[in-house]
């Protein structure tokens, strides 16, 4: 495999990661506000068919993407209303919505099965596209992939470098303290859940109008990505930069499963096909393992040099959720 082929392949990895990235960033925003939106799998499918249907009917890709965001925002509104106003279990509501969204998408999508629809075209950036290595990797993508690059840094800046972002972290970590400082915690949770949902909703048309264009019902191959996005959110430690790394790692593993197939004929093809999924779960385990008591005991028993290295490694990977994640807030 020559260098150019590898570069083009890696550029494909970045493009294919874009939908997962939107879902992960959207969920990160939501969970930073203290709300768990478990509906991702259903939201992605429903927004995929919603966006595709609107784009087919109107011929407008923009309306298709907006429809996807609207679907995501509406599903998130249900999550917010049932958990904040009705004080129902966020996990239960999200899970039911994940199933409902999936089945509804297959039902509503029947008229759009395998029809030819609009698709986002590549938009190479003049001059930048010719930069060696960086050009083919980053600057010959489509507008949605550029947006996926930008959203990582924009959301990171918002969360960690702005005053409203500080308040966002506050309502997810210590909502009572944020309330004392004048934050309308529940209203902010509503707003961030809906915004996060809209970003999650962008993942659907990012598939159906771009990387996996069209709609093929059960055969669309989108069922399951929502759950992966949820696990990457945890892997990402509720940090957009780390979450983006997780999304790209997952996409890279999928690509490696293909390119290694002829190189490693001794390994059953199924292993390479399935590997990205258990590998992500394994990474998730490593991220959370350092919080366990038995790990502390194991570390204590290690020789000092090894303990030092292992502790630093585990500390670097450690991630803790927002302290009030999933906990309803009452001002009284």
């Amino acid at each position: 495999m020559d260098t150019n082929t590898i570069l083009v392949g890696l550029a494909g990895v970045l493009a294919l990661a874009a939908p997962i990235l939107f879902a992960v960033i959207g969920e990160t925003i939501t969970e930073r506000a203290g709300i768990i939106n478990l509906s991702l799998n259903g939201t992605i499918l429903l927004s995929a068919i919603g966006g595709f249907a609107v784009a087919c009917e109107t011929g407008s890709l923009l309306l298709g993407f907006l429809m996807g965001m609207l679907v995501g925002a509406l599903v998130a509104l249900i999550v917010a209303f049932s958990s904040i106003t009705l004080r129902q279990s966020q996990v239960a509501v999200g899970f039911v919505l994940a199933l409902l969204g999936r089945d509804l998408s297959y039902f509503l999508g029947t008229p759009y099965m395998n029809i030819s629809g609009p698709r986002l075209a590549a938009l190479p950036i003049p001059f930048l596209k010719d930069i060696p290595v960086l050009g083919p990797l980053f600057f010959r993508q489509d507008v949605l992939t550029y947006l996926s690059f930008a959203i990582i840094f924009l959301v990171w800046l918002w969360i960690f470098r702005t005053r409203p972002g500080l308040m966002l972290r506050g309502i997810g970590e210590r909502p009572a303290a944020a309330f004392v400082r004048g934050a309308n915690v529940n209203l902010m949770r509503y707003v961030y859940t809906i915004i996060g949902g809209a970003v999650i909703g962008l993942a659907g048309p990012a598939y159906s109008l771009n990387v996996k264009a069209g709609w093929m019902g059960y055969q669309s191959g989108l069922d399951g990505f929502g759950w992966i996005a949820l696990s990457i959110t945890i892997f990402g430690g509720w940090n957009p930069l780390r979450a983006a790394f997780g999304a790209y790692l997952f996409s890279l593993l999928q690509w490696l499963g293909l390119v290694l197939q002829p190189v490693l004929p001794g390994i059953p093809s199924q292993v390479l096909q399935v590997a990205p999924f258990p590998l992500m779960i394994l990474t998730l385990l490593l991220v959370n393992i350092s919080n366990a008591e038995w790990v502390e005991r194991m570390l204590a028993a290690m020789p000092e040099g090894l303990r030092h290295v292992t502790t630093r490694l585990l500390r670097a990977m450690r991630a803790s959720p927002p302290a009030s994640l999933g906990v309803p807030f009452e001002s009284e």
Binding site: G12, G221, D223, F225, G257, V274
Partner: peptide, 14 residues
């Protein structure tokens, strides 16, 4: 015979 995430490779990627 078709794409099932978590079970198959992605035919789009192939």
């Amino acid at each position: 015979w078709f794409n099932i995430p978590g079970v198959t490779s992605d035919p789009t990627q192939v």
